[in-house]
Amino acid sequence: MKLNLLIAALLALVLAACAPNAVLAPGDRVASTATAVETDYQLGVGDRIKVNVYNEPALSGEFAVNDAGNVSFPLIGDVRAAGTTPSEVARVVQTKLADGYLRDPKVSVEVAVYRPYYILGEVKAPGQYPYASGLTVVNAVATAQGFTPRAQKGVVFIRKFGEDTEKPYELTPDLKVFPGDTIRFGERYF
Rank of each mutant, 00 (worst) to 15 (best):
S87M: 10
L3F: 05
R80A: 12
Y189Q: 15
G46C: 11
G69P: 08
A25W: 05
Y118M: 13
P26V: 01
E38P: 05
L97A: 09
I49H: 13
L5W: 07
P179W: 07
K160W: 09
A151F: 00
A81W: 02
Y189K: 15
G180I: 00
A9G: 08
I49M: 13
D28F: 02
P74F: 01
N55D: 10
A34T: 11
F73T: 01
G186K: 14
V123R: 10
R103H: 12
L13R: 02
Q42F: 05
A8R: 01
Q128A: 14
E187G: 10
L102F: 05
R184S: 15
P74C: 01
Q128Y: 03
N4I: 03
V30G: 02
G121P: 13
V14K: 02
L3C: 07
T165N: 11
A112L: 09
P116D: 03
S32G: 15
A36L: 15
N52H: 08
P105E: 01
V51E: 09
K50D: 13
P74N: 06
R150V: 05
A16E: 02
T39D: 04
V53C: 00
A58I: 01
G77P: 00
P57N: 04
P26D: 00
L10M: 09
L24K: 07
P168W: 05
E170A: 12
A9F: 11
D104K: 15
A64Y: 11
A142G: 15
G180A: 10
V89T: 08
Y54Q: 01
G134W: 07
Y131D: 00
D99Q: 08
A34G: 10
L3N: 07
R188K: 14
A82Y: 09
Y131H: 12
F178R: 15
P86E: 00
Y41N: 04
T95F: 10
P168T: 03
V23A: 14
G180M: 08
A8M: 00
L175G: 06
P105R: 01
K106G: 13
L75W: 04
A19Q: 10
F178H: 15
Y118H: 12
N139S: 06
Y117S: 03
F63Q: 01
V30I: 14
L59Q: 05
F63A: 00
A12Q: 01
R91G: 09
K124F: 04
N139G: 03
L171W: 01
D164T: 06
T39H: 07
A144H: 03
D67P: 14
A12P: 08
L97M: 09
K167G: 07
V51L: 14
V123S: 11
V155A: 04
F73N: 01
K2C: 05
Y131K: 06
G46M: 12
D174E: 15
